[in-house]
Structures are given as structure tokens and as C-alpha cells.
């Protein structure tokens, strides 16, 4: 199958005596594409990426500043009480978790806000009408969210490195958990964005689900510290695995086994991807 880029009708050469209309039938038709509509996918992806790059101070710089503030606050407030956690300095222990928190919050914000705004303003039809199938749509949104998450993560990491010198223990693990954490929250953002009818609903998801899970995930303390019922409960928090896995890649210190974290993240992402795909495919709350 070939990909045709021609969409503009080219006037057919005029022959005397015939109609002055160009022979449209030969040149204009539905665009044909192969199994994947790459142009459509790329357009949607770029639309989503440009959407956040357009306000980069808000989407990239602001999270960096907020994360550095968190680092300062926690180091200053707890510096007198906590010097070492799991054999590393407290700020070093804190830094990887804060980077992941910044990444996932921004991935979630990217997909969810885009969908909710499109729905409220009614321009979601511009995404539903083009010949893009549900898998292409979900993956374009999700990867744009991942792109923002990674961009925020890399920028935050670089700035943090100035204040908290750390060397990365395992780049592969860092990359895996960075991508899978961003992907997970991008997908949750898609599911939440489709489900939400108003901005209130989105605020509710953020307040009651995302923020508590992220805060209570072991970013700020080792879960070894938790008393018994909560210690076991912590192992059921998916955010724990992304932060723990990322931290183990960054500084080589972790609470849970590496393979378990990678497996959990893979399974959760697969389930979420299927849910998001089914929601778009069936048109739940999108088409009526």
C-alpha cells in the first residue's frame, strides 16, 4: 500500500471543447493510507505536543521550580531529624521520588486537561471525525503525555543534580520506569478525561486519587518505616513501584525487588491501555 500525499485537486489540462471543470474524479478522493494512518497520528501527536510547548513556562518551567521548592522545604524541615535513609543522604533519597512525582503529575495533566477542555469547548469532534482509529488516537494522546513527562523529568533532574549530586546506577532501569510511569498517568489521564464531564470532576480525581497516591507512595520516606497494616497496604499502591523502581535505577537503593516493580508497571499499563482503547472505541461519553 502506498501513502498518497496529494490532497489538492490539480486542474486537468484543458482540451478545447470540453467542460472547463477539472476532472475531479481522477484527482480528488478519500485519502488512502495503509494499516496505520501515520499522517493523522503524527498530526494529532504534534497538536498535543505543541499544546504544551506553547505555554512551556507553565508546563515545563513551573514544575521544575515547584519540585526544587519541595526539595528545599523537606531538606530544611527534616534535615535536623533525618540524616540518612537506607544508607543515603536524605536529599539524595528524596530527589528521585520528586522527579517521578513531577513527571507523572504533568503527564496526567497533559492528557486529562486536553480531553476535558476539548469536550467542554466542543472541539472534540475535530479529533473524532478524522480517519484516525481508536488505537491511533489513544497512542497519540498517551505518547504526547509521555513526552511532556519525560521533558519535565529530564529538566527537573538536571536542575536537581546541581543541588544534589547523584550518579545514576542503572540507566536502563531509570529509562524503563520514567517511560512506564509517564505512560501510566497519561493513560489514567485519558480515562479520567473521557469520564469527566466538568472541570470539577477532574479536580476531584486529582484531589482524591492522584495527589494522595503520589504523596503516600514512599517519595518522602522509606516504607520500611511504616507500621504494619500500612506497610502491607503500601505494596498495593502502584505509585510505590514506579518511585521505588526509578529510585533504584538512580541511586541503587530500593524497597521492593526490581523485577516485581517492572512486572507490576507492565501489567498496570497493559490493563489501562486496554481500558482507554475500549473507551475510545465504543465512544463512551465521547460519541452519542
Amino acid at each position: 500500500m502506498t501513502l498518497t500525499h496529494e490532497i489538492s485537486p490539480q486542474p486537468a489540462p484543458k482540451t478545447p471543447g470540453t467542460s472547463s471543470f477539472p476532472d475531479l474524479g481522477q484527482h480528488v478522493g478519500p485519502r488512502s493510507f495503509g494499516r496505520v494512518n501515520w499522517i493523522g497520528w503524527h498530526s494529532l501527536y504534534m497538536k498535543e505536543v505543541r499544546r504544551f510547548l506553547n505555554v512551556a513556562t507553565q508546563t515545563i518551567a513551573a514544575p521544575v521550580v515547584t519540585t526544587l521548592l519541595f526539595l528545599a522545604i523537606f531538606s530544611l524541615a527534616l534535615g535536623h531529624a533525618v540524616e540518612m535513609v537506607q544508607g543515603v543522604l536524605f536529599p539524595v533519597f528524596l530527589a528521585p521520588g520528586l522527579i517521578v512525582m513531577a513527571m507523572v503529575q504533568n503527564s496526567f495533566a497533559n492528557t486529562s486537561s486536553s480531553l476535558v477542555i476539548s469536550k467542554v469547548q466542543g472541539n472534540i469532534v475535530d479529533v473524532l471525525m478524522p480517519p484516525i482509529n481508536s488505537i491511533e488516537m489513544v497512542s497519540a494522546y498517551a505518547l504526547a503525555g509521555v513526552s511532556r513527562g519525560l521533558l519535565v523529568g529530564v529538566t527537573t533532574g538536571l536542575f536537581m543534580w546541581i543541588f544534589v549530586p547523584f550518579h545514576v546506577a542503572n540507566w536502563g532501569l531509570v529509562a524503563y520506569h520514567a517511560v512506564s510511569a509517564s505512560l501510566m498517568l497519561s493513560l489514567i489521564g485519558i480515562i479520567g478525561g473521557i469520564w469527566a464531564d466538568k472541570f470539577d470532576h477532574m479536580a476531584a480525581i486529582t484531589n482524591f486519587v492522584i495527589t494522595p497516591f503520589a504523596f503516600l507512595s514512599g517519595t518522602f520516606y522509606s516504607i520500611e518505616r511504616l507500621p504494619e497494616p500500612f506497610h502491607t497496604i503500601a505494596y498495593f499502591n502502584p505509585f510505590f513501584y514506579m518511585i521505588d523502581g526509578f529510585r533504584s535505577g538512580m541511586i541503587g537503593v530500593s524497597d521492593a525487588p526490581t523485577w516485581l516493580g517492572m512486572l507490576v508497571m507492565f501489567c498496570i499499563n497493559s490493563v489501562l491501555a486496554v481500558i482507554a482503547w475500549r473507551m475510545v472505541a465504543t465512544g463512551y461519553k465521547l460519541k452519542n
Partner: peptide
Amino acid sequence: IQAALFATVFSLAAGEQGM
């Protein structure tokens, strides 16, 4: 919620001696 989370997280991170 944010304030309650901050308080929880700080007290967990600080531990007994940090109180």
C-alpha cells in the same frame, strides 16, 4: 486534603525523633 497529606508525609518521614 493537601494539608492533611503534608502533615502525614512529614510525620512519617520525620519519625519519632523528628517530632
